[in-house]
């Protein structure tokens, strides 16, 4: 290895990277899927969901925040990490109220797809059954806090892309909830619009457009036929208007 050798080892494969890239960015560029929920390439990473935890030179770290170094040894697809990620996803499921059977996002939901990917068969932990409000006050969008995993993607998109700061997190610990920046606290009283990028970025069904119902039949949805690892890294882009 010399100073110009910009490669690192990911699951035993040499992967090239560009200086300054995180492990997530380099892996995504190389077509390697690392499970994640709170990461989006257009925003500064938070490292809050911990789902992208990998083993870096023998130590755990989040792939979305860790810059790659030449020669770094990174483990991603291992039984140990899959088991840990499964626990993380199970905790996300029990912390909210996620009912996939009738959720309109089912089949297109990253949380559900990641759960399948990590082999989640049950919730494992006792459900919290938190009391969270559904906000149906907006004419075009539904905010169902039951399904919110507090990834803050909508917070970041609204603030950094839409320039509106409609969303924020409030409260502490298990009482943390997504709040809306309006006098009444209702989405319908905010300046949120269905054309905002924040309206398209939710990885679950917490923010969904009204009047769409179940737009794709079972079998034709994004993750029906292929595991999320094979579908690969796919996120809405603020540059592609109308993409979902």
């Amino acid at each position: 290895m010399n100073g110009n050798d910009f490669t690192f080892v990911l699951d035993g494969e040499n992967i090239p990277f560009e200086p300054g890239q995180t492990i997530m960015e380099a892996a995504t560029q190389a077509g390697v899927y690392i499970p994640h929920l709170c990461y989006h390439e257009e925003y500064r990473p938070r490292g809050s969901c911990k789902l992208c935890t990998v083993k870096i030179n023998g130590h755990f770290g989040t792939a979305c925040t860790m810059p790659v170094q030449p020669g770094m040894q990174v483990d991603n697809d291992t039984d140990e990490l899959t088991a840990m990620r499964r626990r993380v996803v199970q905790m996300l499921f029990v912390e909210g109220n996620h009912y996939c059977p009738f959720c309109e996002k089912s089949g297109n939901c990253q949380l559900q797809a990641v759960a399948y990917h990590v082999g989640m068969q049950d919730s494992h932990y006792p459900h919290f059954y938190p009391l969270r409000n559904v906000d149906a006050s907006h004419p075009d969008m539904l905010l169902d806090r039951d399904r919110c995993i507090q990834c803050e993607l909508c917070v970041r998109a609204s603030r950094e892309t839409d320039g509106k700061a409609v969303f924020g997190l409030s409260g502490r610990g298990t009482r943390t909830q997504l709040v809306v920046n309006s006098e009444s606290g209702l989405l319908g009283d905010s300046d949120f619009s269905i054309t905002d990028f924040a309206a398209r970025i939710c990885p679950t069904g917490a923010l969904i457009p009204k009047r769409e119902g179940y737009p794709l039949p079972i079998g034709a949805r994004l993750y029906d036929a292929k595991d999320i690892a094979r579908v690969g890294h796919r996120q809405p882009s603020s540059k592609a208007a109308g993409e979902k």
């Binding site: 059977p101 119902g213 179940y214 737009p215 039949p217 079972i218 079998g219 034709a220």
Partner: peptide, 18 residues
């Protein structure tokens, strides 16, 4: 018609989806 033998998503308020 609904994508599954049990608990599919064919019919919706206002008509049919698939």
């Amino acid at each position: 018609l609904t994508g599954k033998r049990v608990h599919g998503t064919g019919s919706a308020p206002g008509g049919f989806l698939k």
